[in-house]
Simulated assay, not measured.
Amino acid sequence: MRIGFLASHGGSAARHITAACAAGELNATPVALLSNNSRSPALAWAREAGLASAHLSSARVPDPDTLDAAILDFFVQAQVDTLVLSGYMRELGPRLLSYYAGRIVNIHPSLLPRHGGRGMYGDRVHEAVLASGDTESGATVHLVTSGIDEGPVLAQTRVPVLPGDTLESLKTRVQAVEGDLMLQALKQLA
């Protein structure tokens, strides 16, 4: 498995997976990272880690079709066969989705289908869980399709919502299980 990452900010999943590959926990080779954010810490990390890296965004390439083609070309040139979204905050284009159908994975910080869909990412998800009164949350790894958070679920881990939980306490517990859950899903996909 040759893995490419898309990240907008820190890229914690990319870092976790790359470390797991280096430790022999996942038989895969991380090869490339693309970010839509030129100041992304993940982009700087990828360069230091020796991964092929690129910044492509709608600010640099305003036409959506041209941007989609450029992103696809970057990963094809790097000979990537599996894509991992590592906190990527943009929708993927139809060319990329078609070319990598069944080989794009994302982690979502709730038990999908609850608290998923357009606009539901990051802290917004944890706030929605707390506001709903749910007694449990967790993380879901799913295949990426054209529908936001609608792809088939590959793996889930449940995390209790405790009395007195805050956004930060719930977020910390959910993030603590995300890396290993992604590894589990990638092992299944391989």
Results as ranks from 00 to 15, higher is better:
Arg124Trp: 13
Gly117His: 02
Thr140Leu: 05
Gly138Gln: 07
Gly87Lys: 02
Asn106Ile: 05
Asp73His: 13
Gly119Glu: 02
Gly119Arg: 06
Arg90Trp: 11
Leu96Asn: 05
Ser98Tyr: 05
Tyr99Asp: 11
Val144Gln: 06
Asp149Tyr: 08
Thr140Gln: 04
Met120Lys: 03
Thr145Asp: 15
Gly117Glu: 02
Pro109Leu: 01
Arg124Pro: 05
His108Val: 05
Ala128Gln: 07
Leu112Ser: 07
Arg90Met: 12
Val105Ala: 11
Glu136Gly: 03
Gly151Trp: 08
Arg118Tyr: 10
Arg124Ser: 12
Val141Met: 10
Pro163Arg: 12
Gly93Thr: 08
Met120Ser: 02
Leu112Met: 10
Arg95Tyr: 00
Arg158Glu: 11
Val105Ile: 12
Gly93Phe: 07
Asn106His: 11
Gly151His: 07
Leu130Asp: 05
Gly102Trp: 11
Asp123Ser: 13
His115Glu: 06
Phe74Glu: 04
Phe75Lys: 06
Pro113Glu: 02
Gly87Gln: 09
His126Tyr: 10
Leu96Gln: 04
Leu162Glu: 14
Arg95Phe: 06
Thr82Ser: 02
Leu162Asn: 10
Met120Arg: 12
Leu85Tyr: 05
Thr145Pro: 06
Leu85Ser: 10
Ser98Gln: 15
Tyr99Leu: 06
Leu143Asn: 07
Ala155Asn: 07
Pro94Arg: 15
Leu97Gln: 11
Arg90Asp: 12
Gly133Arg: 04
Arg124Glu: 15
Arg103Gly: 02
His126Ser: 06
Tyr88Gly: 04
Leu143Ser: 03
Gly133Val: 05
Ala155Ile: 01
Val159Thr: 07
Val144Glu: 08
Leu83Asp: 08
Gly93Ile: 06
Leu143Ala: 01
Pro160Met: 08
Val129Ala: 09
Leu143Gly: 07
Gly93Val: 13
Pro109Thr: 07
Val76Pro: 01
Thr82Asp: 10
Leu112Asn: 02
Arg114His: 11
Arg158Asp: 01
Arg114Pro: 05
Leu92Glu: 00
Thr135Tyr: 03
Thr157Val: 15
Pro152Tyr: 02
His108Asn: 06
Gly164Phe: 09
His126Met: 03
Phe74Tyr: 10
Ser98Gly: 15
Gly147Phe: 05
Val153Pro: 11
Val76Trp: 00
